[in-house]
Design a protein around this nucleic acid. Structure first.
Lengths: 139, 139
DNA sequence: GTATATGCAAAGGATTTGCAAGCAA
DNA sequence: TTGCTTGCAAATCCTTTGCATATAC
């Protein structure tokens, strides 16, 4: 379980790290901010500081356990990398996030990087719009 | 010239707004942060506060004169909307920015939004990599 | 003249850091 | 033990706001 993931990443297995990883792995929508994780820790009665949450999330990012996203607004949100390759649709009314995967786009991105002589390391694609669900509510 | 753009946008023509627009229109790489604009104002001997720069840039964004981007890192950068439709390649070594336009990707994005029942309002695509230029320097 | 815009300083939110105390190996 | 981790508080970074003054039309 988590213990192994942490060790493999070269991170000592500590209670805060295990708890934080647990929370992220168990979260239904898989996109949490540092604040979200911190609140959930409080809910669970853990005594872990917000600074530690930030530090641990950053370490997890460096260890390729999490990916950081910066959808509009100042906050960063994190999700498990093990969820695999996908991009995001964000509803600007509700903030809800959906995921999609499109090989054609990925192919084009690789081709463009090559064309401009860039060694592709990563890319970020976020589609913003109003979801059907949000439209219905509005009515 | 600028005067008209401002009036058309419903913004009173004030010295700070004109100067800031001038700077952005004359900047060679067309991607400036609030700090960048502020420094350039100082260089030119203008006495305009940083808060005003932020306020004006935000107004310009609302008036569809500028587009705000949030490439990695906390800072926002702005560019003229009149430059038209394009996305960005950002070099993670040098921070340099290049632009590209790819109709195939845009078509796919529209199709995906439709497929997920999203009214597409905007999207953000940034490719990160190491530019040829940066690679040469490293050697 | 009057509403809007500006400058300054203070406030704000998110994230990071310094340091002494605590824990894993 | 011994160094990596944590908690707390203070610091930092970018950005926004309050308010009295200055300015555009």
């Amino acid at each position: 379980m988590e213990q192994n993931d942490l060790k493999k990443a070269g991170l000592k297995v500590t209670l805060p790290r295990v708890k934080i990883l647990e929370i992220i792995e168990s979260n239904p929508d898989w996109h949490m901010s540092a604040e979200d994780v911190y609140k959930e820790l409080l809910n669970r009665g853990e005594d872990i500081g917000l600074a530690t949450v930030y530090r641990v999330l950053t370490q997890f990012e460096g260890a390729d356990i999490l990916k950081r996203h910066q959808f509009e607004g100042g906050k960063s949100v994190f999700e498990l990398i093990s969820k695999g390759d996908h991009d995001h649709l964000v509803c600007i009314k509700t903030g809800s996030v959906e995921e999609f995967h499109d090989p054609i786009i990925q192919e084009r991105i690789a081709a463009i990087a090559e064309q401009y002589d860039f060694d592709l390391t990563d890319y970020s694609l976020v589609i913003y719009g109003i979801s059907g669900a949000a439209r219905v509510k509005k009515k």
